[in-house]
């Protein structure tokens, strides 16, 4: 069922991208608008939010509290820095990059990406301890983003790990987002697929024969795709203040869910196999 869902999402995303590409080609033929140069693209935004967030995932205890949200981006002569911590946008932390080529509707960047977060787990099983203590995997890759009226598509391929304790890390993602205006509300829906190589997932979720304990046997994780869907609604209270609400759901790759550690973690307390996040907040846009 999970694989069917993932394949369906992938096909849908590729299909929609193709439709958009054809549409774009027709527009390109007609339009002769000069491209803005790098200096015209200088600038950005910073959005600070405060609101209530509920997050349930296998990685941490349930979050159910008031939280701060920060989202921002600034570009200068092609160089950019992005900081995305929760709320209405994707939750990818801090990344830097260079926007090296643009067309009327597409932006091409070299960018860093936090391809996997850190994991710190220590489980005492009978007379043996199982430690899973792994740092972030920060990678560098190519990113292509297309903006078409109310739709955005983004592809990223990151083959280089900037620092990792393992080889053959590979990350790729595809996102499709679309927004609708209903009166002064902006409704947004997006779906994203994130692929992580077997080497990466095995590093975080695999258990070697030496590490294995009585209840956590050896496990080798294969490559996998996380599927994330999100819907959100924003309302401009003033030119600087937004009311926002969002719902995010992530179905993790089978090789993550099948990991003995993750199976144990997801059954622990209020945790769950999937990540679900809901938030209501007020943001100030600088």
């Amino acid at each position: 069922m999970k694989k069917t869902l993932q394949h369906l999402s992938l096909s849908l995303l590729i299909g929609l991208s193709t439709i958009h590409s054809n549409h774009l080609y027709a527009e390109d033929v007609i339009s002769n608008t000069p491209e803005p140069d790098q200096e015209d693209r200088n600038g950005g935004f910073l959005k600070l939010g405060y609101g209530y967030k509920v997050e349930i995932s296998p990685y941490a205890d349930e979050v159910n509290k008031f939280s701060m949200f920060l989202n921002g981006r600034y570009q200068w002569n092609g160089l950019f820095v992005e900081a995305f911590y929760g709320a209405n946008e994707r939750n990818e932390g801090l990344s830097i990059g260079y926007n090296f080529y643009n067309t009327q509707d597409w932006n091409f960047d070299v960018s860093t990406i936090n391809a996997h977060g850190e994991i710190n787990v220590g489980i005492a099983d009978a007379d043996k301890m199982l430690f899973q203590d792994f740092d972030n995997t920060d990678m560098i890759g190519l990113r292509a983003t297309g903006n078409f009226e109310q739709a955005t598509v983004q592809f990223m391929v990151a083959p280089y790990a900037m620092s990792s304790d393992y080889d053959d890390a590979f990350y790729a993602s595809m996102w499709l987002g679309k927004s609708w205006q209903v009166k002064n509300w902006e409704l947004h829906g997006s779906i994203g697929l994130e692929y992580r190589s077997a080497a990466m997932l095995d590093y975080y979720y695999g258990i070697s024969a030496e590490e294995a304990t009585e209840h956590f046997g050896p496990y080798e994780a294969g490559a996998g795709i996380d599927v994330t869907a999100q819907v959100s609604a924003s309302y401009p209270i003033s030119t600087n203040i937004l009311f926002e609400t969002y719902f995010k759901y992530t179905d993790f790759a089978g090789s993550i869910n099948d990991s003995p550690v993750m199976q144990f973690a997801s059954s622990f307390g209020d945790r769950a196999k999937e990540r679900t996040e809901v938030g209501v907040l007020v943001s100030y846009v600088f």
Partner: peptide, 11 residues
């Protein structure tokens, strides 16, 4: 102009 620069992250 802001939208052109940032919309890819405004998912």
């Amino acid at each position: 102009s802001t939208r052109k620069n940032v919309s890819w992250r405004m998912f």
